[in-house]
Amino acid sequence: MEVITEIDKRAIDRLFQSYYEGLSRYAYSILKNQVAAEDLVQQLFITLWEKRNELEISSDPKSYLYRSTYNRCLNEVKRMKRRGVHTEVSEEYDLSSQQDTSQLVLGKELEGRIEDAIETLPEKCREVFRMSRFKELSYKEIAEKMEISIKTVENHMGKALRLMREELKDYLPLIVITIVLMKGW
């Protein structure tokens, strides 16, 4: 465990190199917007620098950074809700909404395949998955609506992703290539 006794620029640089990607990925998982996620993590490090004389990070700095990222994300989600902003929409993509005809056909085919895969999920599992995907409900909200425990929601979601992976196994390389082509990655 790394312990920081004094926050200087080299210490910040080292922390940044070590944790920036992981923190950004974590922020993205909550915000679902890569630009916003990276901005948030950069701002965290800037604040860390600005408050370096006031802060005492006696515990693991990694824990501090992850918890700070988490709390900042929650605040950001609150702000977005308050402003009625749904940044998630900007990052969503529709496999069938492509310009090129061949890509359109392929996109629709993929959507159909994905829909088929969802249909193969066990009933409860599918219901949980659909609530998460289409209604964008949190695990807690799903648990309340279905009157099951959050643990059960976690089980269902893990199972759903595992089964979907199996169902899309043969398709996955093609799907990835298709998305790469469509998104111009």
């Binding site: 496999l95 993929l110 998955f129 995907r133």
Partner: peptide
């Protein structure tokens, strides 16, 4: 990748 496809979202 599976999550990205099934949820219609880009990967990080």
């Amino acid at each position: 990748k599976t999550w990205s496809l099934s949820n219609g979202r880009e990967r990080f």
